[in-house]
């Protein structure tokens, strides 16, 4: 449906619905149920220079209308990704855009990752993970700092002509526009947010933390209002496209993000509970645009009446 097509950073996406990094594996895991070709964009799990085993289990725990995870960027590493995951993604992507999400422990690692990913034929954009709550080096506590964000984004942009999107954390919510502005001034052509909120859970019998890593990141419907607030703040502060993430389970949730200023959305945790959620959201948006006689879904972006 052409009314759902959106243009971000000079690229057309067939619809504004993407999967959030780390919630759709490498695409293949879901392929019996839903094809990545239906998406506006497939966003890979965070890829790092070296393979990472991830954190000590238990790694997830359910909370009220949400979940905490402490996966810790477990991934196969960039060389294995290129060798064993990328060919499948390329073959099955259809008209979907592909955004590679990259992580790193240092400016040099981000720089090398950007160069390596940039060389892959068929990648449409790079999303820089500045916001993982579950690793010490290369996680939110070290990267989501004013000054540091600019350094990383400049280093990434120096190595690639692809659009660079900065994925921000909500954990320093009151500074979030400042971070977005710094990312944009450093060359970021889009901002995606939010990543998970830091949290923890405790077993009252053993009096131990439930997660092996003690703390984790909260996701799921519980964080939707935080995501909307953060997206509104950032969309009001920058003039690049903003991608709204956090707690979307239906097309109505996606619409809320668009209305407060997002140009597209990413769906995360809901893929775990309803593997067909992206398809349902796309169909829901189609019906909404048709029923409300909008010429294009883009006209909803930032249409909040205050």
């Amino acid at each position: 449906m052409k009314e759902l097509a959106v243009e971000l950073f000079g690229i057309e996406f067939q619809n504004p619905v993407m999967v959030a990094s780390g919630t759709f594996g490498y695409g293949e895991e879901y392929s019996d149920l839903i094809s990545i070709s239906e998406l506006g964009a497939f966003v890979t799990k965070t890829i790092t220079l070296e393979p990472r085993p991830g954190n000590r289990p238990p790694r997830i725990v359910e909370t009220s209308s949400g979940m905490l995870n402490s996966i810790g960027l477990a991934n196969v590493g960039v060389e294995e990704f290129i060798c064993s995951k990328w060919p499948w993604i390329r073959r099955n992507r259809g008209d979907a855009r592909v955004i590679a999400n990259i992580g790193g422990r240092s400016v040099a690692e981000f720089s090398r990752m950007a160069r390596r990913i940039s060389g892959l034929d068929g990648v449409d954009g790079i999303e820089v993970n500045l916001s993982c709550p579950n690793v010490e080096e290369g996680g939110v506590s070290k990267l989501s700092r004013l000054g540091r964000i600019g350094e990383i984004i400049r280093a990434v942009c120096d190595q690639t002509d692809l659009p660079v999107i900065s994925k921000l954390s909500p954990n320093l919510l009151l500074d979030i526009e400042g971070m977005a502005v710094e990312a944009v001034e450093s060359g970021s052509r889009g901002i995606s947010l939010i990543n998970t909120l830091m949290g923890m859970d405790v077993d009252v019998e053993s009096r131990r933390p439930v997660l092996g890593n003690v703390t984790g990141g909260l996701s799921g419907p519980a964080i939707l209002p935080v995501g909307l607030f953060a997206v509104k703040k950032v969309a009001d502060a920058v003039d690049v496209p903003v991608i709204g993430i956090g707690g979307i389970t239906s097309h109505r949730d996606a619409l809320k993000y668009l209305i407060v200023g997002a140009s597209a959305v990413q769906i995360g945790t809901a893929n775990f509970t309803n593997p067909l959620v992206c398809r349902e959201v796309i169909r829901g948006l189609e019906a909404y645009v048709r029923d409300h006689r909008f010429e294009s879904i883009s006209s909803l972006t930032g249409s909040l009446i205050e």
Binding site: E29, P57, R59, I60, N69
Partner: peptide
């Protein structure tokens, strides 16, 4: 047995050593 997020191999949550 392990607590699972997705059951599909995507979330990496249910790992054992």
């Amino acid at each position: 047995e392990s607590f699972m997020g997705c059951g599909l191999g995507s979330c990496m949550g249910c790992v054992i050593a």
